[in-house]
Write a protein that binds this DNA or RNA. Structure first.
Ligand SMILES: Nc1ncnc2c1ncn2[C@@H]1O[C@H](COP(=O)(O)OP(=O)(O)OP(=O)(O)O)[C@@H](O)[C@H]1O
Length: 723
DNA sequence: CGAACAGAAATTTTT
DNA sequence: TTTCTGTTCG
């Protein structure tokens, strides 16, 4: 049980826990127990100050951190602690908006648009405004709009401040139209979620007052990565009680590209003049060597709030710096070190700058039969078939969602082509009604004469589905995908690809089932909302016995005994895109500081002499950040080529894209779904399922001659064939 | 309308 | 190098 004198904390940490009233900034370096303090502080509020859980708002950086916070409180205090609001900014705001967004003229059943949806809308805008996507690349326009929203610049304000410039003037036109469209479609984008909540509070003081009164205590973790809109939101919410506790480290601000404003934390004392500031200086995570390295890197940045960090842990082992001949050699070394260290796999993390770096490392791990998990990159929910399924659900949920409608109206093929869709779109825009309505009443529009039957077949299905929404969500999802012909079409196609897609679709249906069990009142809306707001990192399970691979960004806030930072090369890390700007280079350096300080015991840094990058072979120098580490902290093992010149695995071609099979290695063949294999007896077959069990694979193979068979790879003596 | 092909573009980090 | 976009043809 919880000891309210907090003996497990140090003096400074205790001081921070007990300082409950008024604004408080806890500014401290990595691993000094900031998050630990935040959790204990909430416990203290609940237990000693008798604050009710629903009077507390705790903002975390990821959904996973929020869930963890709740779980740890529950362990300390019992289930009632579950009633605090612990969530990300986005989840909290969506919750507020669902109940209040009608004030702003949006439907409470709004859909949340992701980047791809946003780009679709921007392309629509460009077309309507007769602007070319050469002069206004949709991605750039999106990023400008997104930054504007982070800064709480409405289209009008945007025009006033920047409209003098021709280019920004045009972008402001796009921004105006873009926002109008989203509203018409009943959709909000990621940035709207925060901005609209702020607008709601500013325009409806009674709504604000409700939440101000409710949240007697507001706490924000990772405050260094908040943007202006979030700062404004927090200020509004804490405006009444002024019990605002923010926690962060200016040296760990790594999301500037997403609008994060480091000034929020640096200027906290200016914005809240009565603020108390507490610095934590003892690091409990890393060895002295790791801390020294981190400090020597970060001290090259200017304009920091300098911090002391010390540890009572000893020096520990030196940092190991390995230079591979190529990225394959680099991966080979990482795998070899993991194999040679006698500890469980989940003690290792491999961190890198770009998601694309994971491929080579994954291949090496697979060949060594080491279990691993990759976080980030393409999310499950971003796969084409899953996005299609989601689009169907969104259309059922909100018929005004033209973007989702356009995505699935001809998927599977229903003979409703681009021309018809365009006509429908024009009519809808002219009459200011939903595309769905136009389709439904297609008979009224002579232009649509030829397509009328097909289009109405489609709307009939959707309306029928609308009626059966009551049944359990997973059954409903399945029903949607059957009735709309999506699943039947995939079944009929029966190709390697369609089989994988079907598998994913069924996994999606199970995820709906899983969702039902997480709540007492499951709704389609909340299910869709969760999908939009989860990050891959939320699924990270540190108890799963597997090496974890992720970007340095995703690793923020986590810790591991053994950490590899791979690709420590100029051009990779720091990224070549940051070379031209000192600010961006400093951000890369902070990212490096974050990476280094994830390690508790041992840090490995690896780089490659040559690497294939974007299709060309590059010879990259060692990263400047590594040069900034004093050499006495570093050990350099001999390069692989001189040590074991006979090992061919470093020049081995990776098996990634299953359809373009490479030659398998002799020791350990790898198999994956979709590959074609040859069996001595059964002949040619396609792998339906490949499960890695220890050093062997359990395979399910569909043979051309005799149907589906299950067998173990070790006994089957299979050969791979090119498709 | 839709499949197939060819040529061009674009390659960071993500709630 | 891969992935997307536009064009052509049936
Ligand atoms: N007083 C303490 N005694 C022992 N261990 C502690 C103490 N405070 C924190 N720790 C441990 O130190 C580690 C780092 O703590 P925590 O994650 O809270 O730091 P942080 O400052 O939030 O780190 P970061 O800035 O990297 O996110 C954790 O493993 C935590 O359990």
């Amino acid at each position: 049980m919880l000891d309210l004198t907090f003996p497990h904390l140090n003096d400074k940490q205790r001081e921070a826990v007990f300082a409950t009233d008024g604004p408080l900034l806890i500014l401290a370096g990595a691993g000094s127990g900031k998050t630990t303090v935040l959790i204990n502080k909430v416990a203290y509020l609940l237990k000693s100050k008798n604050v009710q859980p629903y009077n507390i708002l705790a903002i975390t950086f990821t959904n996973k951190a929020a869930a963890e916070l709740k779980m740890r409180l529950e362990n300390m205090l019992g289930v009632y602690a579950q009633d605090i609001w612990a969530s990300t900014f986005h989840s909290a705001c969506v919750k507020i908006l669902r109940g209040n967004i009608k004030n702003l003229d949006y439907p409470s059943q709004f859909n949340i648009y992701d980047t791809a949806d946003q780009l679709t809308v921007i392309k629509e805008c460009l077309r309507e405004l007769n602007l070319s996507d050469k002069n206004f690349p949709p991605k750039q326009v999106l990023s400008a709009i997104s930054r504007a929203k982070d800064e709480l610049l409405t289209p009008d304000l945007f025009e006033q401040t920047l409209g003098g410039d021709y280019r920004f003037g045009q972008i402001s036109k796009i921004y105006h139209l873009y926002n109008r469209k989203l509203k018409r479609y009943g959709a909000v984008d990621f940035d709207d979620i925060i901005m609209l909540t702020v607008q709601l509070f500013e325009q409806y003081p009674d709504v604000l007052s409700l939440y101000q009164t409710k949240f007697k205590y507001v706490l924000v973790d990772e405050y260094q990565d908040t943007n202006h809109a979030q700062y404004r939101l927090v200020s509004l919410l804490a405006g009444k009680h002024r019990n605002l506790c923010v926690v962060g480290d200016d040296d760990q601000s790594i999301y500037k590209f997403r609008g994060a404003d480091i000034e929020n934390i640096l200027g906290f004392e200016k914005q809240f003049p009565e603020a108390k500031v507490i610095k934590l200086e003892e690091n409990y995570r890393s060895t002295q060597t790791i801390l020294d390295a981190a400090n020597n890197i970060i001290k090259n940045n200017i304009g920091r709030k300098g911090k002391q960090l010390w540890t009572s842990k000893g020096a520990g082992d030196k940092i190991i710096l390995y230079k591979g001949q190529t990225e394959y050699d680099e991966a080979r070394y990482i795998v070899q070190q993991i194999e040679q260290t006698a500890t469980s796999y989940n003690d290792f993390a491999v961190l890198y700058r770009m998601n694309s770096q994971s491929r080579v490392i994954e291949d090496a791990l697979t060949r060594a039969a080491i279990p691993y998990r990759v976080l980030g990159g393409l999310r499950f929910y971003d796969r084409k078939e899953i996005k299609d399924a989601i689009a169907y659900l969104r259309v059922v949920f909100n018929k005004g969602d033209n973007v989702s409608l356009k995505r699935i109206i001809n998927e599977p093929k229903r003979g409703i082509g681009a021309t018809t869709v365009e006509k429908v779109e024009q009519i809808a825009a002219r009459e200011e009604i939903d595309m769905f309505e136009v389709c439904k009443n297609a008979n009224r529009y002579p232009q649509l004469e030829r397509a009328v039957v097909r289009v109405r077949q489609f709307t009939d299905v959707i309306e029928r589905l609308n009626i059966i929404q009551q049944q359990p969500l997973d059954a409903f999802v399945q029903e949607v995908l059957i009735q709309t012909g999506y699943i039947p079409a995939l079944e009929q196609e029966n190709s390697v690809e369609s089989v994988t897609r079907l598998e994913n679709i069924y996994e999606f249906i199970s995820s709906a089932k899983e969702y039902i069990h997480t709540t007492d009142t499951p709704t389609l809306g909340e299910f869709l909302e969760n999908i939009s707001l989860v990050a891959d990192i939320d699924n990270y399970d540190e108890t799963q016995n597997a090496v974890v691979l992720m970007t340095l960004h995703s690793a923020k806030g986590l810790e591991f005994p053994f950490v590899f930072i791979a690709g420590a090369e100029e051009g990779v890390f720091p990224s070549y895109l940051s070379f031209s700007s000192n600010d961006e280079l400093e951000e890369e350096r902070r990212l490096c500081y974050v990476g280094v300080t994830r390690a508790k015991e041992q840090l490995y840094i690896t780089h490659a002499a040559t690497r294939t990058l974007f299709g060309a072979t590059k010879h990259n120098l060692l990263s400047r950040f590594v040069e900034e580490i004093p050499t006495e902290l570093i050990d350099r093992p001999a390069s692989h080529m001189t040590a074991q010149p006979k090992d061919i695995s470093s020049i081995y071609i990776p098996v990634y894209n299953q359809s373009k099979t490479a030659k398998p290695s002799k020791q350990m063949m790898s198999f994956s779904t979709g590959e074609t294999v040859l069996h001595k007896k059964f002949g040619r077959g396609i792998i339906l399922k490949a499960v890695n069990v220890g050093n062997d694979y359990h395979l399910e193979i569909a043979f051309d001659s005799c149907g589906t068979k299950q067998l173990m790879a070790a006994y089957a003596n299979l050969t791979k064939v090119e498709n």
